[in-house]
Simulated assay, not measured.
Amino acid sequence: MTTAASAAFTAPAEADIPSGPLGDVIRQGRDIFTDTPEHAKAYVGNGLSCSNCHLDAGRLANSAPLWGAYGMYPQYRKKNGHVNTFGERLQGCFRYSMNGKAPPLDSAEMVALETYAWWMAKGAPVGVKLPGAGYPKQNFKPPLPADYVRGEKVYAANCALCHGADGQGQQVAGRNVFPPLWGAQSFNWGAGMHELGNAAAFIKANMPLSRGGTLSDQDAWDVAMFMDAHERPQDPRYTGDLAETRAKYHDTPDSLYGTVVNGHLLGAAPESH
């Protein structure tokens, strides 16, 4: 297992998806993953697709690839306080990142997504964190505390071209080419990307698109701060009290929810409730 885990994993080629009923469901899962609002619209509350954060249709290393996640479940998650199956983990993506509702575990959409993930992880060791799985966060800290003003400058220079000066992304024919980073059509306050460490690690490894690794650690943290210091849809676990919700679900320096940044109390905007 140690030897297998130390070698780079390569997911099966898309051209190798088999024909027949199994292949049909794998392809259905791929389609849901790459255009979620079109193929799982009953469960999506914003314009995002899975592949907006899991790049290259869930293949790209250091972008939380499916092949790095599938074999790590079941596992205990502090976020909901119990052992999660892989299906439950996917349900959380719909609830938080998609700001929608969880598909039933036996739904056609969930079966297709799990089958696609199984295919992507075919041949990977089970229960072993593979190189390139998740986001590269180990020992990843900025020299200085993350800063909104510096982050605004990094955003203008490196991110606004694709995501817009207003952070609302770009669409073609009603579909996101570049996703919104805040506001009503972005991920909500319960999503993992709202946490500074997750966002900074993703940005450092993958952004600007096709130029991952070109920002400094400090720039990645600063622009993550800028992005995550904007309002977005409310955490669906909101108790009706902002401070109580922060204490219960966001009691970490990584979360800006319920804190004041740039003169704004995050999570308190009327459209957030």
Rank of each mutant, 00 (worst) to 15 (best):
D31C: 02
S272F: 10
P21L: 02
D254Q: 15
P143L: 04
L266W: 11
V177C: 01
G100Q: 02
G92L: 06
N84F: 03
L55N: 01
A243Y: 13
T34S: 08
Q75N: 12
T2A: 14
I32L: 01
G71D: 00
E14Q: 11
W189D: 08
Y43P: 05
F9L: 02
V177K: 00
D251C: 10
M120K: 11
P233W: 07
E88Q: 13
Q234Y: 12
G167C: 05
L242W: 14
Q234E: 13
P143K: 07
S51P: 00
D241V: 09
K78A: 13
S272E: 09
G213M: 07
Y96R: 06
L242S: 13
A133Y: 07
V25T: 15
G47A: 03
S49C: 02
G92V: 01
N62H: 11
W182L: 02
Q171W: 01
D217E: 14
L48N: 02
V260R: 04
G68V: 01
G45R: 00
V149S: 08
S210C: 08
T3A: 15
R211H: 15
H194D: 05
Y257N: 09
M193E: 08
G267R: 00
D24C: 05
T3L: 14
Q168Y: 10
N62L: 05
A4V: 02
T36I: 00
S107R: 05
M225Q: 12
D222R: 06
F187C: 06
W118R: 14
A243P: 10
G123D: 01
E114S: 07
P233Q: 04
A220H: 14
A69N: 08
D228T: 14
P125L: 01
Q28C: 04
C162V: 03
A124W: 05
R30C: 01
Q28K: 10
A108L: 10
A124E: 05
G213I: 08
N262K: 02
T36G: 03
K41L: 00
W67T: 03
L66R: 01
R246F: 14
H54W: 07
N176H: 07
I203K: 03
A133F: 08
V111S: 10
F178S: 09
Q234N: 15
G151V: 02
E14R: 06
Y148P: 09
K204M: 06
N99T: 09
P103M: 05
S63Q: 02
G127N: 00
P125Y: 09
M120H: 09
I26Q: 04
Y116C: 07
G20C: 06
D35N: 06
M225N: 14
T115K: 08
L266E: 12
P125E: 05
G68F: 07
D228F: 12
A61C: 04
P145H: 12
F187R: 04
K248H: 14
P142I: 05
N99C: 01
L242A: 11
P104E: 06
A121F: 04
G81L: 01
A102C: 04
A160M: 01
P37L: 00
L209G: 12
K141V: 15
